[in-house]
Structures are given as structure tokens and as C-alpha cells.
Design a protein around this nucleic acid. Structure first.
Lengths: 274, 274
DNA sequence: AAGTGGTCTAGACCACAAC
DNA sequence: TTGTGGTCTAGACCACTTG
């Protein structure tokens, strides 16, 4: 690269055109005061992201080395590095010194369910005994309006609903209702789910090519209704933690709505603030 | 700097000796497999951190420019930059392009209580009406053993306890009990607290030089007892969100234990997962 | 115009893993 | 030994803010 600083839109390596706005979650859609400047490494970042979405590299795969990518995009290694840095802090990529950079995966997330924030009260940080999972039902339906809205679907679109109970050492602890868009999850059945061991999100990756990337949660305290009380083994009215999660794939596309009811007599939802 | 890579412990700029282990939250205290290697920028990071703790730069102050710090520590600007980058993502420093780098502060945190994760259900991300605060009591006592333990105090040490209620548009919403170590907060009184407007953590900074840097929270669903029910205007047994927060200053020193009971009929605790 | 953070480059060398 | 990520440097130029 001849000039030290390719002053915007100098990018034309192997990909047709660089998007003016890279991150996608930035511009407030109202009169950008700056004419949409985005640094090179952001453009590289979104090119890499595009390859991830397109499935060029699959979860668990090693992506090309920093130097290879630098050559491919015709930028310096440091610029690629900064792009990868951000993708790594977003948990889309995982760096392993001496080995390479890999596409993150929910499988082999060595020790934990990526999005499950529950810990036993006597919190030895380990000792996280694996949960026993029991699928109660899995059915297809035309979804409730509110669910459809949150998943960016039309009112009449098909949905999959899954209900399951998680138990710790025999005692029921969490009741979950999960809604998924029908189209991407065609073929998901009670048998598939029941026979699977390992995180559900790992199954989504392997079977349906859907990778959950981030999520938001709304947490409330609610009273157990008759249904929940029966399934969780508590009295009606018992306080339960309601955790409503919206999980997203790449590009901020919502792909799962999940409502969990947690018994919190001997465990808690753990959160780190900074 | 003559050699391109000062191979460990070449650091002797204006500070006597660089600590072998920089971050403090890393080594498991058990047979370090590597002989405690820590990169230069980590050492710079902890030198800057030390200056922050020592009060060399106070909350809101501008710290020296990257080049000044580079000269002072006798490293390159890029190395200082990486150190500052990490401190900025930890929310200890705030970068402002064109102006400088500033010590973060809970005052003028333009729009939000830094650690309060509560949002109204109909979540227009703004419209966060300011809460009305009412201090119910502020007293000194010899602390309960469990509280003392979490604050790393002896059983007999003095504590300050504060109880207050937060309301939104006239309706009580949050009941908080706050425990603080007596020594650093000598002089804290009901009057001080009541006459203050603005975040409590801003007052802690300004009056007591204690800056809260991070926190952990344990969240549960509980039933309102008589006390809480009366103060929050709900019936006994009403489900409440219990949020137990341990807040830390620099160096992972716990400085506040806070237990909040939240009414969540029309609002929720919001969390982002990635 | 001067000062500060932000981006980008090119090249050197270190640490780690695998062959 | 080789390849990969990780650190460090020195220098250039861009973008933003202030006088």
C-alpha cells in the first residue's frame, strides 16, 4: 500500500465495495453530522463479519492468519489485528496464541452455558453440577402477536415452542418456554431435543446453522401460577425470578425468545457491573 | 529506548520498581507455569492505576497526554495507548478526542446512575424520569457478621447503615439498605445525604474520596416481609426483586454492600449478554 | 495554529504450540 | 524449525477541539 493513509473508500481488495457505515449499530438514522467516516479497521471488521455470516468459516474453524487476511484485504497486519480484537471482545472469534484465531462456538465452551447466569448461593465458583434437562413439549403454532413482534415476524408466521424443565440434583429449578421462528428451525422436534446432550445453542449451530451471538434480558420477580407451581414443585404464589431473553444472531437479527422462571431459594442470578 | 524489546524488568522510569504481576486479578496463586511474565503495557497500566489510587489525578481531571506519559515512563506512545485503552474499557478513564483523557467520575455521568439497571417496561430507552429519593435512616452500628465478612472487616468494626426509598412519579419502587465501612465514611450523616442531589456515588467521591469502580450483584425473587411491604406499599408476600450488590474501589477492595428490593410490576432489571 | 486522541504502516522480536 | 498470535517501536498523517 503506497499512501500511508488511504483516505476513505480506498478499499477494493477482493470484495466489491466497502460499506460506508460499518458497525451497523451506530448511526441514529438522523442527519449524520459527519459524512459517515469509518476507519479502515471497521471496514475490515465488517468484511470479516460478512464472511462469518456467509459461513465461509464455520463455528470451531480456524480463520486465516492475520498476515493472510492482511494480504487479502491489502492492509497492514496491525489493522487486521485491531479488527479481530474487536470481534474477539464481542465473542465472535477466539484467539489462541500459537495456534490461530477460531470462530467461537457454543459447543466446547469448555465449562458453562454461555448465557446462563445462575449460580448456587454457596458460590464456590466451580462445583457447577450439570443440569438435568427434561423436555416437556415441542410444538409448532401460529405465534402470539407479542412473541411474533419481538422476533420480527408477521402475525401469522409459524413458530416452534419448546417447554422444558431444568433440575439440579433432582430438584426442579428452572422452567423455560422457548419460541423460535419456524422457518430457520424446520425439522426441530421433541426427539431431536431429547436425544441431544450439550447446550441447546450448540445444537442450533450444528443442526440449523444458527449461531446466537448476543442477548438482552428483562428480569422481574413474579408469583408462581398454577402451571409453574406444579412443574417447579412450589406453591402457587411462590416468588420466582422471571428472565425474559431475546437472543440475536449476526446483524442483530432476533432468533429466539425465551422466558425462564427460576427458583431462587438456594441460587441466584449473578451479574458483573463495570 | 535503545533495545527494541526491553526483555522484562527493564522498567525504571520515575517509579522505583515495576511489579512482576500487574493486573492483580490473574495469577491463581499456585505455581505460575510461566515465570510471571507481564507485558510492558500491563506494567504501565498498573503504574497509571497507582497514580489514580494515590489521587495524583482526581475524578474529572485530565491526565497527561499519551506522549507525556510515554516520555515519563520511557516507552512509546503506542504502549501507553494500549494501557489507557484497557483502563478506558474498565471505565476508569474516559477518552475525549481532541481534548484529552480524563479520570472517570460518577458525577456528570451525563444521563444515568452508573450501576442502576432498572428500566420501565414500555422501554423507550430515554424517558428515564429521575427518581425521588427519601432517606429513612442513617445510623452507625457494630455490623452483623455476614455484612462485615463481605466488606472484609472485623466483626466489631463500625459500620454505617443507610436505608432509603426511591420513588418514580410518587410511587415507591425501590427500598435500599446500604452498609458502608465506618472508617472511610466518617462524618456521613442523614443531613449530608438528604441535602445532596445527584448520585450517591458522586457524593462518595467528592466527600470521602472513595470511587466505586465495579460491582457484582446477586439477584433473587423474594416475598415482601411486613417491613418492606409497608415501605413499598404492597401486601406482605408480594414478589420483589432482591438485588444484592457488592461494590469495589480500586484494587478490588469492597467498600459497599447494598441490598435493594425492587417492585417490578411496571419495570424490569435490564441486562445485556455477550 | 497548536494540542490531543485516533488511525495506519512497516518492521523487529518474543511467547506459544505443533510438527 | 515453522507458523501463529502477542508486544513494541517510530514515524506519518487524520480528526476533533480550543484559542
Amino acid at each position: 500500500m503506497a499512501s500511508a493513509h488511504p483516505s476513505q473508500s480506498d478499499l477494493s481488495p477482493e470484495d466489491p465495495r466497502a460499506p460506508a457505515d460499518a458497525t451497523g449499530a451506530e448511526s441514529p438514522a438522523l442527519l449524520p453530522p459527519t459524512p459517515a467516516f469509518s476507519p479502515l479497521y471497521q471496514q475490515i471488521k465488517s468484511l470479516i463479519l460478512r464472511s462469518l455470516q456467509a459461513g465461509e468459516w464455520k463455528p470451531g474453524d480456524m480463520i486465516p492468519s492475520e498476515f493472510d487476511l492482511a494480504a487479502r484485504f491489502r492492509v497492514s497486519q496491525g489493522t487486521v489485528r485491531k479488527a479481530i480484537d474487536e470481534l474477539a471482545t464481542d465473542n465472535l472469534l477466539v484467539r489462541r496464541q500459537g495456534k490461530g484465531t477460531f470462530v467461537a462456538t457454543h459447543a466446547e465452551q469448555h465449562i458453562q452455558y454461555r448465557f446462563l447466569r445462575v449460580l448456587p448461593d454457596a458460590s464456590a465458583p466451580e462445583a457447577q453440577v450439570p443440569a438435568e434437562r427434561r423436555i416437556i413439549e415441542c410444538r409448532r403454532l401460529r405465534g402470539p402477536a407479542e412473541v411474533a413482534r419481538q422476533l420480527d415476524l408477521k402475525g401469522g408466521d409459524s413458530l416452534v415452542q419448546v417447554r422444558r424443565v431444568l433440575s439440579f440434583s433432582g430438584t426442579p429449578a428452572i422452567l423455560e418456554d422457548i419460541w423460535l421462528p419456524g422457518a430457520p428451525f424446520k425439522g426441530l422436534s421433541l426427539e431431536t431435543l431429547s436425544s441431544d446432550k450439550g447446550p441447546m445453542y450448540a445444537l442450533f449451530e450444528a443442526q440449523f446453522g444458527v449461531r446466537m451471538v448476543r442477548a438482552t434480558e428483562k428480569i422481574k420477580a413474579v408469583a408462581a401460577d398454577a402451571d409453574a407451581a406444579a412443574l417447579l414443585g412450589v406453591e402457587v404464589g411462590h416468588p420466582l425470578l422471571s428472565v425474559e431473553r431475546l437472543a440475536y444472531t449476526y446483524n442483530d437479527v432476533p432468533m429466539e425468545l425465551r422466558r425462564g422462571l427460576y427458583r431462587t431459594e438456594t441460587r441466584h442470578y449473578h451479574n458483573e457491573l463495570n
